[in-house]
């Protein structure tokens, strides 16, 4: 089920990338695809009836889901913010140079 949710969200993000003209909407679409792919990677490690991968008083003996996808996604989320901020900084620069964020107007103004 969660496979389908994340695949549909990836499709929505690609639709946004193709159909929107504002560059800010492109950034939002990329962030959306980021979240969807993180969800997909974590869901590949889920096992029915197992617990979160932490040794504690409630789970003293290993009965865990796959921790490796979680470890990969943990760092990917934080890097996502850094990359998003870099994209936002580039948008500010583009707005300063061309005076607009519309893709078609930028293309026309370039000639």
């Amino acid at each position: 089920m969660i496979y389908y949710i994340s695949i549909i969200l990836i499709g929505i993000g690609v639709y946004g990338l193709l159909s929107q003209k504002n560059l800010f909407k492109h950034l939002i679409s990329l962030a959306l695809i980021d979240t969807a792919i993180n969800l997909f990677i974590v869901s590949t490690g889920y096992i029915n009836g197992k617990e979160a991968p932490i040794y504690s008083e409630f789970t003293p003996i290993a009965n865990f889901v796959d921790p490796l996808p979680q470890a990969l996604v943990l760092t990917a989320i934080v890097i996502g913010v850094g990359v998003l901020a870099l994209g936002a900084a580039m948008l500010i620069k583009i707005k300063e140079k061309y005076g607009t964020l519309n893709v078609e107007e930028i293309r026309r103004g370039d000639k």
């Binding site: 969660i2 949710i5 979240t35 993180n38 969800l39 974590v42 869901s43 490690g45 889920y46 197992k50 617990e51 979160a52 991968p53 932490i54 889901v65 979680q70 996604v73 943990l74 989320i77 934080v78 996502g80 913010v81």
Partner: peptide
Amino acid sequence: FLFIVLKAPDVAITEASVG
């Protein structure tokens, strides 16, 4: 919420503060 359903509390707490 979905991360918690998938038994990934570490990812959930990161996504909550970041996202």
